[in-house]
Each structure stands twice: as structure tokens, then as C-alpha cells.
Design a protein around this nucleic acid. Structure first.
Length: 803
DNA sequence: AGCACGCCGACT
DNA sequence: GTCGGCGTGCTC
């Protein structure tokens, strides 16, 4: 190829329908390291933008004159050819721009910063007060007079705009020192030193005695020899030491304690069988999806860890996804204890710097095992031999905003590329996955016994329609309160679930019936007693708690709909001696507070852990013998087709928190719907019956997994405009799609207004519809045009939530 | 998405 | 006459 003109195909960093395609550039001969996956800077119109090379070619269809690539940003291309290819496949599937997907594959710091700088052309201009010696950042100029002046300068050709592309990513570097002279020279230096040069003496002595331990970092030298940086600087100047820069990594696992984790656990028969099947697929390099269905406590994690071991033993790497919420130190410790420094962790708790460093370790092949939340599915791991998705039913694997990808789908695509198995694990698999296992698309593996041989906890339903309440409120039954007291007396611990934060759900005036609403959203304001505010959980609007009705002025106002804060207060009154930890979004907002609360509970510093659904998953506290669900109905009342599934999952998962060690566990579920099948079957932890029953319901309702779904949302501040355009879209769909396809809506979404925008939705349910994808891409085209009129269109392929 | 070009109404 | 409002079209 030498001597031939090479051309780079680039996806530019301009997220728009019109620019969502390849632009071609000449590769100047000076740039030798341009390959597929390179991050580059290119001229684009008048500007410079970042872009990614997705192809290299030697011929072009382009009629104009190609421009040259300007810069290759990184020494190593950040994207692998696999990820470049994956971005193209995904873009078509999820109605997202390719550049948006490429950017989500990379750490946030790799997104470019753009600046416009005004620079004077002649000396006289440079002397103007405006510049005061410095170039001007045009994005920061707000003074109108200055803007006028600047425009004039540009027009008269006295100043010009320079477009800059900045790289935010900063590598952490430290200084490394090594001997600069032969070993025999240092004793000579030692004798020539003045007696009071204690620090220099210490350094030279160390160089004589421990020369083999060099090179040392500045930090090490300073700590070991109690030196300061001035001494090191001198030593370099005198030629004793040579100083170089070395890149280091910020290590998020530095504090993780790995001592107390058991390393070798004997698998039971079920686990052994499952592992064998997975291992076979690893060895055979087969892109086989497995559904690992196992009751809570059946030891799925052990199977994962053994399978990872197998992958590593076969000289291949492993990727393990867990829901953000269960990416607890407990979990990380387990993995780290097995695989040590070959583990990299990616999750939202890391600082951007830590995240970047972990990511680079993976990219360079320095990590063999990656554990992370949703976005870790894009980890630049090569030679993957195994992908694990724990708690595969979790809806957090679906990203709720653009790009709306599902980590499970991405994992399946990657497994095909790498020819490796995917293990989807859950106690309550998603109906979609379970159905695929039924059809034989996935291989079903079952763990039927709890690893510790303990019986599942006994679950009791408390029918709130016929029950005596404690303490004059209508939240806690006497039965539940008595049980809590009994456990506390035995020095055992209790977990209480209430899937609603705040103090009270809404404020009602008994005099005029007024309910206090959010001015921006179509939803009632939640009362937060601790902050003294009425808060909107959708847009964050806050206002003080009223003392009288804002409408009629009467003081007969009531706060209804119990949240975690209120239950906390009631419990303190009913069981004054109890110590309660509350865990919800409000108490875990600060970094590290999540871990802090769990640590306190684990150390037995509290009797009751009261929280929203974030306490339902994955927690493992041996002393917890009672789990109470204060209201099982909250998640049933959601108007989503999968409300039953979510309820069943939540109840089953939270029940699994009870009795994880030697002590027997008990669960009490309070509900107004004790006859509902999701609740009944959760009582028996009977996933199989739930699956059968729910499949019938879904079949009757023409819902997934029998139909594919696409949700089109149209939002605008102008309600009529949103509704009108929604009907236009519907008409278009009706004209072009054929009979078995079902088009529902448009209807206002169940919360019709969020952040001052009205939402109208159309749900398309289809089995086979070739035209749909092109039609939706057309719609996306149109969406961009009408965006200026304040109309937003969102397309969600396989939505998890239909609000 | 930006940015420029161009066309039209409203001002020094 | 010029300024600046926004609609339209292009970026290798």
C-alpha cells in the first residue's frame, strides 16, 4: 500500500440525522498510526471536530476534494474493530446516532471540549483593551458592546476565530527516579558530602545499599527516606538521579479488603451441572446463551466465579455485568479475592478519572476480568471467553435515555463476535428470557436448592382489608409490629420495604378536596418532613409545606399516602427502643452514604433497615430473620403491562433477604390484594407457576414476549401540538403497516405532563413488520425538523417502562 | 449540531 | 441604505 493515497472513513462528533453518516478524509503521510478505531480531529466545514475512524479505504465516491485528517488523539486507538462494527449494528436497532453510541462506549472524559478563540491578526489589534494580552474565549463573552466590537474586527479582517478541540482526559503521571551514574560512583559522592547534609546523605546511602530496588517513585522516596521534593530536584540537577514520568492508574479497589473471603467452595450437584454445561461452551467456543435460573441463595455467584476461572484458564477474558445497585463492596470483594489485580471495575461510583484509568487498563489488556454495571457491556475487552449478566431481569439493564440500548442485547451481539457463551442469571428471569429458553433459543440451567440447604423463608400475607392497625395510623398492622418486636427482643434484625420515599404521597384538603400538584408536572407533590418541603419526584420542584389549604384557606389539610419517612416516625413511636436506618434516594444521595448505611447495619448497629426497592436486591445479612413488606400494592398499581412481573420480582427478591444463614427466615407481606396471582405466587416463591400464568395474560393482551413493542413518545410544551403531531404519526403508521400489527394510542401518558412538557404516546405491537424500521427512521428525520417548533419525538425499541 | 448564506422588514 | 431576524442547506 505504500505510496498509495489512503482515505479514512470518519464518523464526526455532530449528533444529527444529516451528519449521521461517513465523511472521508485523506490520511497525510505524516500520520502513520491511523487505523479503524482511532480517535481523530478533522476539519468540518469551518470548524474542527472530533471523530472516529470506522474504515480505511483507497478509493472514494466523493466528487469534491477531500480534506486532510488533522490529528490522531491517542497513542492506542480507543475502539477495537469489534466495537466499531457493533456501533453500526446498534445504531440501526435502537434509533440512535452512531456517534452517540461510539461515545457511550468510551469513558466520558474522552468526549471532546470545543472552544472558539478570537485571535488578533495584526499588532495594532492585539494592543486593544479588548484583548488585554490574552486571546478571547468567545463562548464566555456576554457583554453586548464587546460582541459588537468583535464582529467588526472579524468583518474588517483584523481578527479571526480559531476553532479548538480539547481533550479532557488527563492521565495521572508520577515521577520515577533511577540512578544516573554507575554504582561505584555513589560511595565517592558520599565521602564528598558535607556532614550536615543529612537528607542528601540518606539518599546516597539508599542508593548505595539498595540500588537494586530502583527505579523508585518520588512518593516512595519521600516516604521511605523522609525527603522532600527539593532534595530530589537537586539530585537530578547534580546528575545523581535521572527523572522520568510514568503513567499510573488511580485504583478504585485499593481499599477493598480481600482477606476474609473464602476462596474454595465446594459446589453442589446443581451448581456442578450448570458449571459443566457452561464450561463446555467455553471450551467449544460456542456463542451459546444460558439462562441460569436459581432461587435466591442458590449460589449463582459461585457458578459465575468458577466459570470465569475456566475462561481464564482457557486464556480468554471474562465480562460480568451486575445491576448498579448490587455492585456493592461485598460483591466486588468476592471477585477481587478470586482474581486479584486482573479485575477491573466499572460503575457510576467511580470518579471520572478512576473510570478512565480502569477503562485504559482494560483497553491495554491489563485486566482479564471486568465487573461492571450496564455500560460496562461496552468494555474494550478483547478475546472474551465468557459474558455473565447477573439478575438479568433487572430493568436497569435498559438505558432509559438515548442511546436506549439493552445490555442483554448488546451482550448477545458481543458473544456472537467472540464465539463465547452468555450466562443470564436470575431467581426470577424476565419473561422474555424464560420464553426464549422454552423455545430452545437459550439453554435452561436450574439451581433448585439453596446452597446452604436452608429452606426458603416462610412467607405470610397480611390482608390489610381485615386487620387491626397499630398506633392509630393505617400503615403497620399489629401483627407485623409484634413480629418486629419479637425479633428485636431476640437480637435479630429486620428489613422493611416500602417502595415510596418521602413522608406523604400527597396533600389533600378535606374542606375543598384540593390536592397539591406540581406546577410543572401532572403529579401530586410529596411531603418531605425532614426538609420541610413539598417536593416533586419528577422535576425536583420544591415549595414549603403549607399550613392551610392554598386554595380555600381552611386548615383541614391531611397528608396521605405513606412514605418511608412517615413509617420511620411511626416505628420510633411504636417501638421506642429500636434503632432504625432509613435507606432511600434521600439518605443515599451523598457519595459513600450507601455503603455507610449498609456497613452500620451489617455491624449490628441498628435493628431495622427500612428502605425503598434499593434494599430488595442482593443484600446478604446473616442476622436478618424478618423481612416485612409494608405495601405490596404500590408496584401493582403502575399501568405498565409488566406491573405483575415487577411486583413478583420485587417480592421474591426481598423475601430472599430473610434467613440467609443458620437462622430461619420469615417474611410478612402486607397487601390489599392478597388474592392477586403475583402476590400469591410470590408467597410461595413459585417462579414457574408465575411464568405460566403471566404468559397466558401476556398472550391474551398481545404483549411481549408474544409481540415486539416500540413506543413512540411525542412531547411538547403545547399540549395541542403534541396531540396533533401524535395523530399525524398514527395516521402514517396506519397507512403503511399491515393488519396483525396493533397500534395503540395516541394517548396522553399516565403522567400527562412532566417538566412542563405534555407527553403523548403511541405503542406499536408487531410480530413481523419489515416497513416499520424505515418508517421510524423517516420519523426520526422529521423529528429533527420539527424540533425547532418545540416538538420532541422519542423512539424506544422494547420499552421497559411505559409511563 | 453549528455555521453561512440569503432574503426581508425595521431602524440609525 | 445597513442591521439583524430567521428559513434553508451544507459539512468529506
Amino acid at each position: 500500500m505504500i505510496g498509495e493515497k489512503m482515505i479514512a472513513q470518519v464518523i464526526v462528533d455532530v449528533a444529527a440525522k444529516q451528519t449521521d453518516r461517513i465523511f472521508e478524509y485523506n490520511i497525510p503521510t505524516a500520520l502513520t498510526d491511523v487505523t479503524v478505531g482511532s480517535r481523530v480531529v478533522v476539519p468540518f466545514g469551518r470548524r474542527k471536530v472530533q471523530g472516529f475512524v470506522v474504515g480505511i479505504t483507497d478509493k472514494t465516491e466523493y466528487k469534491g476534494k477531500l480534506k486532510d485528517l488533522l490529528v490522531v488523539v491517542d497513542e492506542m486507538p480507543p475502539l477495537t474493530p469489534e466495537l466499531v462494527e457493533l456501533s453500526a449494528i446498534l445504531a440501526k436497532k435502537i434509533f440512535s446516532y452512531r456517534i452517540t453510541i461510539l461515545q457511550t462506549m468510551l469513558p466520558r472524559v474522552m468526549k471532546a471540549n470545543y472552544r472558539k478563540i478570537l485571535t488578533p491578526i495584526d499588532k495594532a489589534t492585539a494592543q486593544l483593551d479588548l484583548f488585554s494580552g490574552e486571546p478571547i474565549d468567545l463562548d464566555e463573552v456576554t457583554d453586548l458592546k464587546k460582541i459588537v466590537q468583535i464582529k467588526k474586527l472579524i468583518k474588517t479582517n483584523k481578527a479571526k476565530i480559531e476553532y479548538l478541540v480539547e481533550n479532557k482526559a488527563k492521565k495521572k503521571e508520577e515521577f520515577v527516579y533511577q540512578p544516573n551514574l554507575g554504582a561505584h560512583v555513589y560511595p565517592e559522592i558520599k565521602t564528598s558530602l558535607r556532614k550536615n547534609a543529612i537528607n542528601q546523605l540518606a539518599l546516597i546511602t539508599d542508593l548505595i545499599d539498595n540500588i537494586a530496588s530502583y527505579p523508585k517513585t518520588g512518593k516512595e522516596l519521600q516516604e521511605q527516606l523522609h525527603l522532600n521534593s527539593a532534595i530530589l530536584k537537586q539530585a537530578v540537577e547534580k546528575g545523581w538521579l535521572k527523572r522520568t514520568k510514568k503513567e499510573t492508574y488511580r485504583d478504585p479497589l485499593a481499599e477493598v479488603d480481600t482477606k476474609n473471603v473464602p476462596k474454595d467452595i465446594v459446589l453442589n450437584k446443581d451448581q456442578e451441572n450448570a458449571l459443566n454445561e457452561i464450561n463446555k461452551a467455553i471450551t467449544a467456543k460456542k456463542a451459546q446463551p444460558f439462562l441460569l435460573e436459581g432461587v435466591t441463595g442458590s449460589g449463582k455467584t459461585e457458578v459465575y466465579l468458577h466459570a470465569i476461572q475456566k475462561a481464564l484458564a482457557s486464556k480468554r477474558n471474562a465480562l460480568m455485568l451486575v445491576p448498579e445497585i448490587s455492585l456493592t463492596p461485598q460483591m466486588v470483594e468476592q471477585v477481587k479475592a478470586r482474581f486479584g489485580s486482573s479485575v477491573a471495575v466499572l460503575h457510576s461510583g467511580l470518579s471520572t478519572g478512576e473510570r478512565y484509568d480502569e477503562w485504559r487498563r482494560i483497553r491495554r489488556g491489563e485486566a482479564q476480568v471486568v465487573v461492571g454495571a450496564r455500560s460496562a457491556v461496552f468494555a474494550p475487552l478483547q478475546n472474551i471467553g465468557l459474558i455473565i449478566i447477573d439478575e438479568e431481569h433487572e430493568s436497569s439493564y435498559k438505558q432509559e435515555d438515548n442511546p436506549r440500548y439493552h445490555a442483554r442485547d448488546v451482550a448477545l451481539l458481543r458473544s456472537k463476535y467472540h464465539n463465547c457463551p452468555v450466562v443470564l442469571g436470575s431467581a426470577t428471569p424476565s419473561l422474555a428470557s424464560r420464553a426464549r429458553a422454552q423455545k430452545g433459543n437459550y439453554q435452561l440451567l436450574r439451581l433448585t436448592q439453596r446452597a446452604n440447604k436452608k429452606a426458603l423463608p416462610e412467607v405470610k400475607l397480611v390482608d390489610l382489608k381485615h386487620v387491626e392497625f397499630a398506633g392509630g395510623q393505617f400503615d403497620l398492622s399489629v401483627e407485623l409490629v409484634d413480629k418486629i418486636k419479637e425479633k428485636i427482643a431476640k437480637k435479630e434484625q429486620v428489613i422493611l420495604l416500602l417502595n415510596r420515599r418521602g413522608f406523604a404521597n400527597f396533600m389533600l384538603c378535606r374542606s375543598c378536596g384540593y390536592v397539591m400538584q406540581c406546577p410543572n408536572c401532572d403529579i401530586s407533590l410529596t411531603m418531605h418532613k425532614d426538609t420541610g418541603m413539598m417536593e416533586c419526584h419528577y422535576c425536583g420542584h420544591k415549595e414549603p409545606i403549607p399550613r392551610k389549604c392554598p386554595k380555600c384557606g381552611e386548615t383541614k389539610i391531611r397528608f396521605l399516602g405513606t412514605g418511608t419517612q412517615k413509617v420511620e416516625e411511626e416505628l420510633k413511636e411504636l417501638i421506642p427502643a429500636s434503632k432504625i436506618l432509613r435507606m432511600d434516594v434521600d439518605t443515599t444521595r451523598r457519595k459513600g452514604s450507601y455503603k455507610k448505611i449498609l456497613d452500620q447495619f451489617g455491624e449490628g448497629k441498628a435493628d431495622i433497615l427500612l428502605g425503598t426497592q434499593m434494599i430488595a436486591k442482593g443484600l446478604d445479612f446473616p442476622n436478618v430473620t424478618l423481612v416485612g413488606v409494608i405495601n405490596a400494592d404500590t408496584s401493582l398499581q403502575v399501568p405498565d403491562y409488566n406491573a405483575s412481573e415487577k411486583t413478583f420480582d420485587l417480592l421474591t427478591q426481598v423475601s430472599g433477604r430473610a434467613g440467609r444463614a443458620d437462622k430461619k427466615g420469615e417474611v410478612m407481606i402486607q397487601t390489599y390484594n392478597p388474592e392477586h396471582y403475583a402476590i400469591q405466587l410470590a408467597q410461595n416463591q413459585d417462579y414457574e407457576s408465575f411464568y405460566q400464568k403471566e404468559m397466558v395474560v401476556r398472550h391474551q393482551g398481545n404483549y411481549p414476549p408474544f409481540f415486539y413493542t416500540i413506543l413512540i413518545s411525542i412531547a411538547s410544551k403545547n399540549e395541542q401540538a403534541a396531540a396533533k403531531f401524535a395523530f399525524v404519526v398514527k395516521r402514517k403508521l396506519m397507512e403503511q403497516l399491515h393488519a396483525p400489527t396493533i397500534i395503540l394510542g395516541p394517548t396522553p401518558s399516565s403522567i400527562a405532563k412532566i417538566k412542563n412538557q405534555y407527553f403523548y404516546q403511541i405503542l406499536v405491537k408487531y410480530k413481523k413488520e419489515d416497513k416499520l424500521i424505515p418508517i421510524l427512521h423517516e420519523l426520526q428525520d422529521e423529528a429533527q425538523k420539527i424540533k425547532k417548533q418545540g416538538l420532541n419525538v422519542y423512539i424506544d425499541n422494547e420499552p421497559e417502562r411505559i409511563i
